[in-house]
Design a protein around this nucleic acid. Structure first.
Lengths: 226, 226
DNA sequence: GAATTCATACTTGTATACAAGATACATAGC
DNA sequence: GCTATGTATCTTGTATACAAGTATGAATTC
């Protein structure tokens, strides 16, 4: 793996885990030193992150972790709804939808005793569910765009499943979406899917503010040192 | 403007105007020499173009202009349909849609004598029409993704209006889409819009192959020299 | 004390030098 | 003639040096 690639992933993790907080300013050499690399691969990584929407550059005047903006996240959630609903509508018209969804059905339409309970696992599985839907769409570009949108949302979305009750609710919502698709009930499927995504979005919005405040206190030593 | 930015735009133009043909291999130093720049800004430009889907890098083994792939373009056209139809559906439910569409109406619902006839102008106007729709969606992220998709399609889409009859057809299709939205006839509007985009896509597919062959002959001197 | 100017330190932007790896081709061995 | 191996060349990956611009703060002037 490239050094640039390593730096890219590390920076992303730092941002995701709130070690670098929204609004923080930093310089290329600072990152280079921390990552034990020269500025060249760091710059490459930073420009990728900029295109991903995580950081922004100020001309000859440093970088900044993109400040949080809930309008931004909500708009991305909206895009997710549009893309996923489109795929679901198509699926409802396909005769082999049962086979295509078989994998998802075994995971989500199981007995309560067989359900995953760890928030991290469920966050991963939830992502797989929505990616799985897009895979059924037979449109690689739409899939790529959807993946990109989900990636941008990951920073807030992972917090969803720490909220009490959201894991159980997710199981029920997913299985009823799958049920609707299998019944070829397009309007019910899209309605349930939209509701599911909106619920997740609303939960996340409420949590995120607190998480950032927590992180800001946790790393306050680092900041004051500087 | 950055040197990297200049190189980025120039390379894009070279690819769009078929001076660099799909499938062509090239190296960073080659480009740097042609653009009178060092490899650093060239690399930055190339990595941006890679993310845009125009070129690809082979590890320590040079670059390539992305070979044409109609499946790729058709999938992107599909994404356009999904996004634009979504916005149109929303517009049909807004009470102030007449004011929002006023600009587009004066351009497209005019007398035949007032219509633009130059293919380049019409290509520009057509793009503005579809961007204009997305602007009405009040979702900046969706708008940005749509712009991105259109940008990727520009390389083939600009050929559309050189086909006899497509300019006139575009005027009629656009005005009937606008008419349907103003009548709040959501299903007719999306049907017309889908048909319009599909027609454009089909025209383009037929033309593009010939254009590349033409360009390949036109620049054959350059290639054989090398 | 307030405003202005100038110097300094710090930032990114760009060029260049070198390292590491891939490819192609010639050459040796069979 | 065929295969294997080694070398030369070319490629990108990375580090570093320098150029150009920005912000900050101290010194100066009023």
């Amino acid at each position: 793996m490239n050094l640039a690639e390593k730096v890219y992933r590390q920076l992303k993790e730092d941002i995701f885990d709130f070690r670098m907080l929204p609004g923080d300013r930093f310089s290329e050499s600072e990152v280079a030193e921390r990552m034990q690399a020269s500025r060249t691969p760091v710059r490459e990584a930073l420009y990728r992150l900029e295109r991903d929407g995580y950081v922004q550059v100020y001309f000859r005047n440093g970088w900044q972790v993109r400040p949080f903006d809930f309008r931004y996240f909500e708009e991305l959630y909206d895009v997710r709804i549009v893309l996923e609903c489109e795929v679901v509508r198509r699926l409802c018209m396909e005769s082999d939808r049962a086979e295509r969804l078989a994998g998802l059905v075994t995971i989500w339409c199981c007995k309560p005793s067989q359900r995953q309970v760890d928030p991290v696992d469920v966050a991963f599985l939830d992502e797989e569910f929505h990616f799985g839907l897009l895979e059924c769409g037979q449109n690689k570009q739409m899939e790529a765009i959807h993946k990109d949108v989900c990636e941008r949302l990951r920073i807030v979305r992972r917090l969803d499943f720490y909220e009490p009750g959201r894991i159980q609710a997710t199981y029920e919502e997913h299985s009823s979406i799958l049920d609707a698709i299998l019944s070829a009930d397009s309007s019910r499927a899209t309605r349930e899917l939209t509701r599911h995504i909106e619920l997740s979005r609303n939960t996340v919005r409420d949590i995120t503010v607190h998480r950032i405040q927590e992180a800001r206190q946790r790393y306050s030593t680092d900041l004051s040192r500087k």
